[in-house]
Amino acid sequence: MKIIALDIGGTAIKYAYFDGDDLIFDDVRPSEASLGGDKVLENIISIITEIGNQHSYDTIGISTAGQVDSINGTIVYANDNIPNYTGMELKKILEDKFKVPVSVENDVNAAAIGEAIYGAGKGENDFLCLTYGTGIGGAIFLNQKLYKGAQGVAAEMGHMMIHPGGLPCGCGSFGCYEQYASTTALIRTAKAHSPEFYNGKAIFSAFDHDSKDAKRLIDQWVKEISYGLVNLIYIFNPSLIVLGGGIMTQPYIINKLNQIIKESTMPSFHGVRVTLASLGNLAGVYGMKAITSKEYQEK
């Protein structure tokens, strides 16, 4: 089966072309999500068209930010990271346009499926998956299946209330986890301290050059990450937590988190392992490969 898979985020669209089990190529381009859902759709169509002009394909898989009705392939809800995206009927629009079957799934669910079938979660019955970037997304794997909840939108871990009455969030609440523990939150806090900390690479570059300010900012941010993870550990008692997002490739983060979590939980919960998503930024497209090729099925 020949598959085009896309992973739409608040910053970038990652895309790949698979021929059977072989990844033929992958690439990335800006999503331009701040310009709204119509612009994102325009970019999706452009990428698929460009690939289709060079390669035949049997199906399309779309991993996307936002709450997704994966049966109907619609966006149930998207916050201001992608304005006017809520309600978009992605599956119908793309099937009408390209005349092949289209599957649509939430981006972190897709990443968790990718990790479960091909990556760090392979062979695990139960694990949690979180991605840290523009916001924070989550997925729950129980008995080798995604847990989606009553309305199909479970695991909005980025909107756990960690600091009641705290910073306003795009969801309309205050003190949400992603306002303190996302990559966006780290950069916002660091830039307020010094304009030299203008992105994640700059912050960690300063850290690598023994900047005490960078270390203090990173340590506080990692502590914020741990608050959410400790709560999840006490609720789910998982054997494994898989963390994704480009910033998580920094070895210091995973090592520090494992240390803090061990110090912050009861001994009976010390069996949990926190590890990096082994598929990296391609976890979402691999998840859509698994879904579209039926290597993963919900039922």
Rank of each mutant, 00 (worst) to 15 (best):
T292R: 01
G246T: 04
S226V: 12
H270R: 13
P251F: 10
P251C: 13
L257D: 08
Q250P: 04
S264Y: 09
S239D: 11
A277H: 01
T292I: 06
M266T: 10
I233V: 15
S264F: 09
S226Q: 02
S226I: 01
I254T: 11
T265S: 10
G287Y: 12
P251M: 12
G228R: 00
A283P: 02
Q250T: 13
I253F: 07
I291Q: 02
L257G: 06
I233E: 05
S226Y: 03
N231V: 06
K262C: 07
S268K: 04
Y227R: 01
L232G: 02
L232I: 10
L276N: 11
A277R: 00
T275F: 01
A283C: 14
L232V: 08
G280Y: 11
T249Q: 14
A290Q: 01
T292N: 05
A290S: 03
G228D: 00
Y234L: 14
E263D: 15
V272N: 09
L257R: 01
S293G: 03
V285I: 15
Y234K: 10
A277P: 00
Q259N: 08
S268Q: 13
V230Y: 02
P267R: 10
N237C: 12
G244F: 04
Y227W: 15
Y286S: 03
G245R: 00
E263Q: 10
I260S: 07
L279H: 07
V285T: 14
Y252D: 11
N237T: 12
E295Y: 06
M248W: 04
N281F: 05
G245P: 00
K289E: 07
V242S: 13
K294T: 08
N281S: 08
L276I: 15
N255M: 07
S268G: 06
I261L: 09
I241N: 07
Y234I: 12
K289Y: 12
T249S: 14
